[in-house]
């Protein structure tokens, strides 16, 4: 029954579905969303969060008119359930399991040569993907990622006298730029408030403990798999200096700091992040009729 003042409504083109697959020897029911058509952009969310962080990218016709954008929730996150037996184990994400689930998901959907965009822990994970599997990864774009990020793995969120539903999102909100739109910063907070107990901590085990690519940057073949690394200048978890170290160590890697933005660029200020993303996508997959095919993305300082 419509009200007298019918509200404006719209149905987004984003479609959500589930896929059942096995990964690391366990059955997984994975939730994913997608929109658009063309070369695949595979989006990987941050620690303790879910694929809603990419809703702006999924809804951007400038992107979806050229690319098939796919974002999924890791097991234990968002609408993907934890595997059977989760109640008897401590959740600690390992590099091997993380690489496996990304590749198993891509294989299950038959995603060929995806451009993989990952943020935060996934911004570092994409470097390991490029190192191990350059042949079947189209390119990687790491946001807030580095060869090693220290200090994020802490136990306090498991304490029964700490309300992690409030403290974890506030802890991570600290990493955003204050000038990012308030409604977006609050949305990042909200998504974090919905993480399961110990999941943010378990993800940071990968981010700050298990993965250490220092001294291994030379093993990444950027001719086979181009690498772009972008980090917001307000990010004090993975600082622009951390990312600069990675770029310096990986031959052929491109990128640098993003001005006026923090740790969650695609979620906290998508319009600004888009100005950094589009030149990279144009370089990887030039748009039809592009007048600027020879312009290198992110050469020099940071912003094209």
């Amino acid at each position: 029954m419509p009200s007298t003042e019918t509200p404006a409504s719209s149905i987004e083109n984003v479609v959500g579905r589930y896929i059942n697959l096995r990964s690391s020897g366990r059955d997984q029911r994975i939730y994913f969303e997608e929109a658009g058509s063309g070369p695949v952009i595979l989006c990987l969310h941050t620690a303790g969060a879910d694929s809603r962080q990419f809703r702006h990218l999924l809804n951007d016709p400038d992107i979806t008119s050229r690319f098939r954008v796919v974002a999924f929730d890791l097991p234990w996150h968002g609408r993907s359930l934890p595997p059977e037996g989760w109640w008897e184990e401590e959740y600690l994400l390992t590099t091997d399991a993380y690489v496996a689930i990304v590749r198993d998901f891509a294989a299950a959907l038959n995603l060929k040569q995806p451009v993989v965009i990952g943020c935060s822990m996934a911004g570092s994970l994409v470097l390991e993907l490029a190192r191990r599997h350059a042949d079947d990864t189209g390119a990687v774009i790491g946001l807030s990622g580095a060869l090693k990020v220290n200090g994020r793995f802490q136990d306090w969120s498991l304490r029964p006298d700490v309300n992690a539903q409030q403290s974890v999102p506030t802890w991570t909100s600290s990493l955003m730029a204050p000038q990012s739109p308030e409604v977006s910063r609050r949305e990042v907070w909200w998504i974090y408030s919905q993480g399961g107990p110990g999941i943010y901590r378990g993800d940071t085990y990968f981010y700050s403990q298990d993965l250490d690519l220092r001294g291994r940057g030379q093993e990444i073949d950027t001719e086979a798999c181009p690498v772009y690394l972008l980090t917001g200048e307000y990010d004090h978890a993975c600082t622009p200096a951390d990312t600069a170290d990675a770029i310096a160590e990986i031959p052929g890697a491109k990128g640098g700091p993003m001005k006026d933005i923090g740790h969650f660029p695609m979620a906290e200020n998508y319009p600004l992040f888009k100005t950094y993303l589009l030149p990279i996508l144009d370089e990887l997959h030039p748009a039809e009729g592009s007048q600027d095919l020879n312009r290198p993305a992110l050469e020099g300082t940071h912003h094209v």
């Binding site: 306090w156 304490r159 700490v162 600290s174």
Partner: peptide, 26 residues
């Protein structure tokens, strides 16, 4: 941000109870 300053500013020190800090951070 206070957590950023605690890391990066020599002019700011946050100490006392870490649990009280995270418990009431919001």
């Amino acid at each position: 941000d206070l957590l950023a300053l605690a890391k990066n500013s020599p002019d700011v020190t946050v100490s006392g109870s870490d649990v009280e800090l995270v418990r009431n951070l919001r």
